[in-house]
Nucleic acid binder design. Structure first.
Lengths: 144, 144
DNA sequence: ACATTTCAAAAAATGATTGACAGCATAAAA
DNA sequence: TTTTATGCTGTCAATCATTTTTTGAAATGT
């Protein structure tokens, strides 16, 4: 009985191979895959699993706080099993999404709270540019 | 001849009533409307204009740097005629989107650059919580 | 004036996501 | 053990946001 199975059971949710496969894939990747990417990646092991199941499972995992949904500006969402609200880096060249670890952003929410009457609870920080691989190729193109 | 008309003409783009209406609406609102909202708002004055025209105009305005696109985490984009990359506040209660002016975030891009090998060019910062109106009503609900 | 080009607007298509429903598997109740 | 209930999966259609293609009107050249 691993961690995820017991969390699902506690919530009265069924533990199915598809569900375990999706969350395990998310836990074990540093990419930030879309539903479509998750579906394609798992389709070799689960050839009968449908895309709708992926969407429904992601919705369920989001609602119980096991994954977070990212909107980096594409036409679709990406998903991350690391649910603390850390900043992300998005490459204009290859569209990869990386995590950013930066203590300069610690307690940003607390600092920003002083400037607004909102009751702040969460943040999403996206930084855009060129990743180490792609910036070599960049000369003086226009940037999006 | 106002400002926007001359900008469009300089770029070799035609000045049409629809285009002027869309950008003027964006300039004169503090909301951050979606394409759909823009369409509905203007449809009383322009009953024949289609939603596709709104999208094409927004795409054009984005490409010449007159508006920016926001992805606050919904399934659709919102648009802002204020094109400097300032942070936004999103209310969990009423879904409004406000601008945030906070000097604590000045040169965040420069500071973050030291922590990554990315060549950074832009940022999008979103803070989530309850606006002054909605926070009165909040007790101990779950938060999204 | 006529032909040609341009380009905005409308119509149609696409891609992402969700909803409805039937069948299946598991678990609870009898 | 049988019955019953619950809820998950997969199929397929629907919906929503957005993009592409087509159409038509105005602008430009001859």
């Amino acid at each position: 009985m691993d961690d995820i199975s017991s969390i699902l059971k506690e919530k009265g949710l069924k533990v199915t191979p598809q569900r375990l496969a999706i969350i395990n894939m998310l836990k074990n990747t540093k990419e930030h895959p879309s539903a479509e990417t998750i579906y394609k990646t798992l389709s070799s092991d689960f050839p009968t699993m449908s895309l709708a199941t992926v969407y429904k499972t992601l919705e369920m995992l989001k609602s119980i706080g096991l994954v977070q949904e990212l909107n980096v500006g594409e036409g679709s969402f990406r998903y991350d099993a690391n649910v603390n609200s850390h900043p992300h880096l998005i490459c204009y060249g290859c569209n990869r999404v990386d995590d950013l670890y930066d203590s300069a952003l610690d307690d940003l929410l607390g600092r920003v709270s002083k400037y607004t009457d909102y009751l702040l609870m969460d943040q999403k920080l996206y930084f855009y540019g060129y990743c180490p691989d792609c910036k070599k190729k960049v000369t003086n193109h226009d940037h999006p």
